[in-house]
């Protein structure tokens, strides 16, 4: 049984870490970009960003004044039990979000869409979003009695788009919409690039958006899709995005995409829906695994897209084998 006070205190620490500490994989990617950049304005911008991450850590202040929209992904091992159940867990995550908004401090971004009501704590109707995933035990001898708490503070009113493409649009159509999204939101740096670009392909409309968002926020720089042909596309699309000639803030440059991650889901046979997402220069994510015995392990890789999350079959084969 995982205690609820443990969940809340861990969640508060995660809010703090996400807002202040740039994840190492993204930092490595941006340092590499700064090394290869030759546009003088773009170069200046990247160096300023690298200084900014240092300043944030030194001062323990948020790296960006725009908190984005703090949200939660909860992945539960199949054997996990939470004190008070999931209602208590959701309350704990909402309390942690509100407490960190005042504590770090973060900007209270969340308002009612019509009445602009602001509770000054980033909590409201549907906010923060809490999404769930489940994970089987690694084998028949272990219990998956942990939960992973992942917070993402995704920025960006810009840099995200959706389009219903069709099989006849093909790979060239996918490339074109990808370029369109980078061009449209890269100009003037509206997308806060260079970014981790996530592409969602397939699913229904809403899942297409979800896949792309998770591809940008829940996969680290340097990770590759387990489908080797999709992994090749990821390499190719990273190159393509960086060949536009546009860099940070839309200035002339060669670094627009720190990495490109693609996730797919099965879609309607007549369509090929596609979404593009940019996880900005402040790629804020933090992860903790809370074990049933109270141990907490912090990390920055959500490790969301396991073989189980990408399964294609009716039954989950490894478990079936283990049961035989």
């Amino acid at each position: 049984m995982i205690s609820i006070s443990h969940i809340q205190s861990t969640a508060e620490t995660l809010m703090d870490k996400a807002a202040i500490e740039i994840p190492q994989d993204y930092l490595d990617g941006l340092q590499e970009a700064a090394r290869t950049e030759d546009g003088d304005l773009s170069c200046f911008v990247l160096k300023a960003m690298l200084e900014n991450y240092e300043a944030a850590k030194e001062d323990r202040r948020a790296m960006c004044g725009d908190t984005g929209v703090p949200r939660w992904f909860v992945k539960m091992g199949n054997d996990a039990q939470v004190e008070g159940g999931m209602i208590a867990l959701e309350a704990a995550l909402r309390r942690a979000t509100a407490a960190a908004t005042n504590g770090v401090p973060l900007r209270p971004n969340r308002v009612h869409p019509l009445w602009r009501t602001d509770h000054n704590n980033n909590v409201g109707i549907g906010a923060p979003e809490i999404e769930y995933g489940f994970e089987p035990a690694a084998n028949a001898y272990e219990k998956a009695d942990w939960i992973d708490l992942i917070t993402v503070h995704k920025g960006g009113l810009f840099g995200t788009d959706y389009r219903m493409l069709f099989p006849s649009d093909g790979l060239q159509g996918i490339k074109r919409f990808y370029l369109d999204s980078l061009m449209a939101f890269g100009k003037r740096g509206l997308a806060c690039q260079p970014a981790i670009i996530g592409i969602g392909l397939g699913g229904s409309k809403d899942i297409c958006m979800t896949l792309g968002k998770r591809a940008s926020t829940l996969r680290v720089v340097g990770s590759r899709n387990s489908d080797p042909r999709i992994a090749e596309m990821e390499d190719e699309f990273k190159e393509l995005g960086n060949s536009i000639g546009m860099g940070a803030m839309g200035f002339v440059g060669k670094n627009m995409v720190i990495d490109c991650n693609i996730e797919v889901g099965y879609c309607h046979t007549g369509g090929m829906p596609m979404s593009v997402h940019a996880f900005c220069l402040s790629s804020r994510r933090a992860v903790a695994r809370i074990h049933a015995d109270g141990r907490v392990e912090y990390r920055t890789d959500p490790d969301w897209f396991t073989p189980y999350q990408r399964r294609e079959t009716v039954e989950w084969e490894p478990l079936q084998e283990a049961a035989e």
Partner: peptide
């Protein structure tokens, strides 16, 4: 005048 980055929030905060 444009801010830089965007998102040099910590530097500007200083």
């Amino acid at each position: 005048l444009s801010t830089v980055g965007y998102g040099t929030g910590a530097l500007l905060g200083r």
